[in-house]
């Protein structure tokens, strides 16, 4: 039952997406890969396409995977699934538990998640980097250096560090996306 699978997969992702959309990538990619809804390459290129669509990653991902697996209804069901947990939780907090955040136990529970969320997000970046820069998907894959991708990364890092030094604030991701897109056309065409 594809609709139920979609709903439950994205419901779980919605319920555990703490700390912004990037933390969700590792949760959702495990299910998406194990159901065979996407290959690893498709997932990586989807994440690139997703950055140029406005809105939360969670919604974009649910819409795309849902559409691919179950058409319009699939897209709708997956999106409702991913939004539902936060909708219900915020409603409960807004109506009943306005002081929830003031309980020390709740803060300890949520505060304890932050280090693991940070670890999760950094590990997501590291595994994507291993795949794209060195061709390392599993321990058995042969090492293959992608000099062009490493070059684009060096440029992106250099631009953002220089920007921070001169302008004293973070560069907009939009500029980095445009620069890396242009570099992609120059290097990979």
């Amino acid at each position: 039952m594809i609709f139920l699978q979609l709903f439950l997969t994205f419901l779980k992702a919605g319920a555990f997406t703490f700390g912004g959309g990037y933390a969700m990538i590792s949760i959702i990619s495990a299910s998406v890969l194990s159901y065979g809804w996407m290959t690893e390459e498709e997932l990586l290129s989807f994440l690139a396409v997703e950055t140029v669509i406005p809105g939360p990653i969670a919604v974009n991902m649910a819409t795309y995977v849902g559409y691919e697996q179950g058409g319009f209804l699939g897209a709708l069901i997956a999106t409702i699934g991913v939004v539902l947990p936060s909708f219900v939780i915020i409603l409960i907090i807004a109506s009943l538990l306005k002081n929830l955040m003031k309980y020390a136990g709740v803060q300890a529970f949520l505060g304890g998640m932050h280090p693991s969320i940070s670890g999760l997000i950094l590990a997501t970046a590291a595994t994507m980097g291993l795949k794209i820069f060195f061709g390392l998907k599993t321990v058995e894959s042969a090492l293959h250096f992608d000099i062009k991708s490493i070059g684009v990364m060096a440029l992106v890092v250099a631009i953002s560090l220089t920007w921070k030094k001169i302008k004293k604030k973070e560069i907009s991701p939009i500029i980095l996306i445009v620069v890396s897109g242009v570099m992609g056309i120059i290097l990979f065409l």
């Binding site: 590291a126 991708s149 684009v152 242009v182």
Partner: peptide, 18 residues
């Protein structure tokens, strides 16, 4: 080709969020 370049940028954006 453009999105192959943007893929690399995504790694950077994810790492900076972390």
């Amino acid at each position: 080709a453009a999105f192959k370049g943007i893929q690399v940028c995504v790694i950077f954006l994810i790492a900076s969020a972390g």
